[in-house]
């Protein structure tokens, strides 16, 4: 399977914007760095039409070393979660952008309308299956 890398994205910026290859690569890096920095501050990053990156606080729990069966505490930590927007989900399922005029203004968070607190940390997957079932 093909893998798209930084080099591909930088090349596309180069072709689309008409800056030098070097500057295109630097700008891509800046975009990724700004997103990373916001997330590091615990801030969510919401890219309309694409999805939302957010930081979720996980509580302490008891894990198990699968090899030895030994119980190990998993310390409280912060993890990154990405929720794709409806547009991105539809595109991954083969729909073309032209099918999606209706979805243009979508809110990547609207899945949370049903299914409770997005910060919920108990292993439940709130709205995903629910939405389909209701559709």
């Amino acid at each position: 399977m093909n893998t798209v890398t930084r080099a591909h994205l930088a090349e596309m910026i180069y072709m689309q914007v008409g800056l030098s290859r070097n500057e295109s690569a630097d700008l891509l890096e800046t975009v990724l760095e700004r997103i990373s920095f916001a997330l590091q501050q615990g801030e969510s990053v919401k890219i309309s039409g694409f999805g939302t990156f957010s930081v979720r606080q996980k509580g302490r729990r008891i894990g198990r070393n699968p090899k030895t069966g030994e119980e190990v505490p998993i310390l409280p930590r912060r993890v990154l979660v990405f929720r794709p927007s409806h547009v991105l989900k539809a595109r991954a399922n083969g729909q073309m952008p032209s099918d999606m005029d209706r979805l243009d203004e979508d809110d990547p968070d609207e899945d949370f309308a049903f299914g409770g607190d997005p910060g919920d940390d108990h292993g439940l997957k709130p709205a995903r299956s629910v939405k389909r079932a209701r559709g």
Binding site: M1, N2, T3, V4, T5, R6, H8, L9, M12, I13, Q16, V17, L27, L28, V31, L32, I35, S36, I47, G49, F50, L80, V87, L88, R91, A92, G94
Partner: peptide, 27 residues
């Protein structure tokens, strides 16, 4: 605007083609 749009449109396009996008250090 074009730079930011290009980044996310290209990632979206790759996923639409069933490809993966790997950005070392980012994800």
């Amino acid at each position: 605007e074009l730079i930011v749009a290009t980044v996310f449109d290209e990632i979206t396009g790759a996923l639409a083609r069933g490809e993966r996008v790997e950005l070392r250090g980012f994800g």
